[in-house]
Write a protein that binds this DNA or RNA. Structure first.
Length: 504
RNA sequence: GCGGGCGUAGUCUAGUGGUAGAACAGGAGCUUCCCAAGCUCCUAGCACGGGUUCGAUUCCCGUCGCCCGCACCA
C-alpha cells in the first residue's frame, strides 16, 4: 500500500521534480537533486519570495556570500560551541543520549558546553547509569552538526560549511550599512545553501544535509522599530497560532494582532507574522487551515532566539504540521558576538545615540516549501491526477496542442508556441490523444492549455483550458500572450474570459 | 547511531537455485479526435560487493539506500 509520501515522491521522480542524489550509485542519504521541473519550481518560489520580502522595506536588499566560513567567525556566532552535542552511548543497550541532558536530569543545573572529559567525570562522580536499561555508559564523544573543511594546501586552516546563511549577513553588516548610507531599518537577504550533518536525515526533502535557505535579516533600532511600522493597520487581522503546548495538537487558534501584542509579544514581531502569513495564504495559496505559527518554548529555542515561532504547513505526506520557516527575534546576539570576537565596534549612529541594532530574522527552508507545494497540490481522483500549483509558480505555464496531427493544425499550434516561448514557460505536444496531453499537463501542474482545432483554421480563435476546472473558453490566438499574462498576474479571472465551450 | 521492515524496468508490481513476466509510463506506426480510446512493434530491470554452489535475482554475510519507532533535530 503506497503512502501519501510515496505518491508524492513517485510523482516527483517520474516527472522530474526531485529525487535522491547520486542514486546511480545507490544514493547519498540526506542529499536530493532537482530535475528540470523541480529546478524551475524552486526558482519561481525563490523569485516570489524575493519579490515579497524585499518589498517589505525600501532599504531591503539581496546579497550573496560564501558557503565556507573560517572557524573564528563561527566561534563568535556560537556555532562551534553550541552546535556541538556530547553523546554518550550505553554499553549494554547501545542507546545514545546527550551527555549534558543526563547530567542536567540529576543536578538540575545547566551542563551545556562541558568538555567530553568533564562529562565523563560528572557521570562517574554522580554514578549516572543508562536511564533506559540501567547499564553502564560508555565514554562520551563530541558531535558537531557542522561539516568541517580543511582550507589550504595542508588543510591547516580550520573552517566549516555554513550551517545557516544568516552568518553571511552578519559578517557583511558593517560593509552594507556603509554602502547603503547608514540607514535603519536595513534588510539583508540571502537565498543560498547551508549544510548540517544531520544524524538521521529523514522524509525526503524535509531533513537534508545540504539545503537551500531563504533568509531575511532585518536590522533595527529596538527603541523605535515598533512605532515606525503601520501596526495599527493590521491590528484587527487574525493570525493562526499555537502557543506553548497547543502545538502538540494538530490545530491552531485564531488570534488577532491586538491580542498577541496584549499577551506580550513585541508589536514589530507580530506585524511581521502578519506579513509572513499573507505570503503563505495569498501568494502560495496555502489553505488557511493548513497554516499556523507554532511557538517554541525556552527549551526548544536556539541559543540566540528570544522569541521564536515556527512557520508550519500541514502536509499529509509528512504526517501533519511541519516546519517550513521561522520568525526569530535574535536581539543583538549576533552583532555583539561578532563585535566582541573581531574587536570591531558594530554599533551605529542613530540621531545622537550609538545603537547596536537588533535583528528580526524571517527564515525559510526552500526545499521544505517546494515539497509542501507538491504535497498540498497533488490530487489523485480516480484515474485523473492533478497538481494544483499556484499558476505563478507552475514550472510549465501553458501547453500548446493541435487537436489533429494534420490539416495544418500542428503548424498553427507550433507557431503559437514559438510566439509565446520567449515570455512564458510553454510546452508543445502533438503525441497521443488530446486527452492524454491534457492529462500529462495536469499532472505536472500546468495551469492552462491551448488547443488549435478546426475553428482555428477559419477564424484564428483557439480553446483555452483551465487545469483546475477543466473548463474551456474560446479566445483569439493573437490575444493569448496578453490573456496569459493577466491570468498569471491575477488581473483577470478565467471564468470572466468568455462563454465556456461545451463539449460532448 | 540503535531496533524493526524493505530493496525486481522510469513508476507500481509478479516470480524462480538453471540469469525474469505483467500493467502503467516512454518511443515508432496505423487509426481516432476536446479530456489517459484501440491495434501492431520497440526500448527498459533483479541496489552494490563478497561467500556458499556446477550454477545465485533467489540462500548467507557485509555495504549503501528507503520507510517506521527511539534518540537527535542550531
Amino acid at each position: 500500500m503506497a503512502s501519501r509520501y510515496d505518491d508524492v515522491m513517485s510523482l516527483s521522480v517520474r516527472r522530474g521534480f526531485l529525487w535522491p542524489a547520486v542514486d546511480l550509485y545507490g544514493g547519498f542519504s540526506g542529499f536530493y537533486d532537482y530535475g528540470h521541473l523541480g529546478a524551475r519550481l524552486k526558482r519561481k518560489w525563490e523569485d516570489l519570495w524575493t519579490a515579497h520580502f524585499l518589498g517589505l522595506g525600501d532599504n531591503y536588499y539581496l546579497i550573496d556570500t560564501t558557503t565556507i566560513l573560517p572557524e573564528v567567525s563561527l566561534k563568535a556566532s556560537g556555532h562551534v560551541d553550541h552546535f556541538t552535542d556530547i553523546l554518550v552511548t550505553c554499553t549494554k543497550c547501545k542507546e545514545s543520549f546527550r551527555g549534558d541532558h543526563l547530567i542536567e536530569a540529576v543536578t538540575h543545573e545547566e551542563a551545556e558546553g562541558l568538555t567530553t572529559a568533564e562529562v565523563d567525570a560528572k557521570i562517574r562522580d554522580l554514578k549516572i547509569r543508562c536511564p533506559k536499561c540501567k547499564g553502564e555508559l560508555g565514554p562520551s564523544r563530541p558531535f558537531n552538526m557542522m561539516f568541517p573543511v580543511g582550507v589550504g594546501p595542508l588543510g591547516q586552516d580550520r573552517a566549516y560549511l555554513r550551517p545557516e546563511t544568516a552568518q553571511g549577513v552578519f559578517l557583511n553588516f558593517k560593509r552594507e550599512f556603509e554602502a547603503l548610507r547608514r540607514r535603519l531599518p536595513m534588510g539583508l537577504a540571502i537565498v543560498g545553501r547551508a549544510y548540517r550533518n544531520e544524524i538521521s536525515p529523514r522524509q525526503g526533502a524535509y531533513r537534508m544535509r545540504e539545503f537551500l535557505q531563504a533568509e531575511l535579516q532585518i536590522f533595527f533600532d529596538p527603541a523605535t522599530f515598533g512605532t515606525t511600522l503601520p501596526v495599527d493597520s493590521v491590528k484587527g487581522e487574525s493570525l493562526r497560532v499555537a502557543r506553548g503546548a497547543e502545538k502538540h495538537a494538530p490545530t491552531a487558534n485564531e488570534r488577532t494582532v491586538a491580542d498577541l501584542i496584549r499577551d506580550g509579544l513585541p508589536a514589530f514581531y507580530v506585524y511581521h507574522m502578519v506579513l509572513v502569513q499573507r505570503f503563505y495564504l495569498d501568494r502560495l495559496r496555502v489553505p488557511r487551515e493548513r497554516f499556523r505559527f507554532a511557538e517554541l518554548d525556552e527549551r526548544e529555542r536556539a541559543f540566540y532566539n528570544k522569541v521564536h515561532f515556527d512557520v508550519q504547513v500541514a502536509q499529509d505526506s509528512l504526517g501533519g504540521f511541519k516546519e517550513v520557516g521561522g520568525v526569530h527575534y535574535r536581539t543583538d546576539h549576533d552583532l555583539s558576538g561578532h563585535a566582541l570576537a573581531s574587536g570591531k565596534d558594530l554599533s551605529v549612529p542613530v540621531a545622537d545615540r550609538k545603537v547596536l541594532p537588533h535583528v528580526l530574522e524571517l527564515s525559510f527552508g526552500v526545499d521544505r516549501n517546494v515539497w509542501a507545494l507538491l504535497d498540498l497540490g497533488y490530487e489523485v481522483a480516480g484515474d485523473r491526477s492533478v497538481l494544483h500549483l499556484p499558476p505563478s509558480l507552475a514550472p510549465v505555464v501553458v501547453g500548446l496542442f493541435p487537436l489533429l496531427s494534420k490539416q495544418g493544425m500542428p503548424e498553427r499550434a507550433e507557431a503559437l508556441y514559438r510566439d509565446l516561448r520567449p515570455g512564458f514557460d510553454a510546452f508543445y505536444d502533438e503525441t497521443g490523444s488530446i486527452g492524454k496531453r491534457y492529462a500529462r499537463m495536469d499532472e505536472v501542474g500546468t495551469p492552462y492549455c491551448v488547443t488549435v482545432d478546426h475553428t482555428t483554421l477559419g477564424d484564428g480563435t483557439v480553446t483555452l483550458r483551465e487545469r483546475d476546472t477543466m473548463g474551456q473558453v474560446r479566445v483569439p490566438g493573437t490575444s493569448l500572450a496578453a490573456i496569459l499574462r493577466d491570468l498569471l498576474d491575477g488581473r483577470r479571472e478565467f471564468r470572466a474570459l468568455g462563454s465556456p465551450v461545451s463539449r460532448p
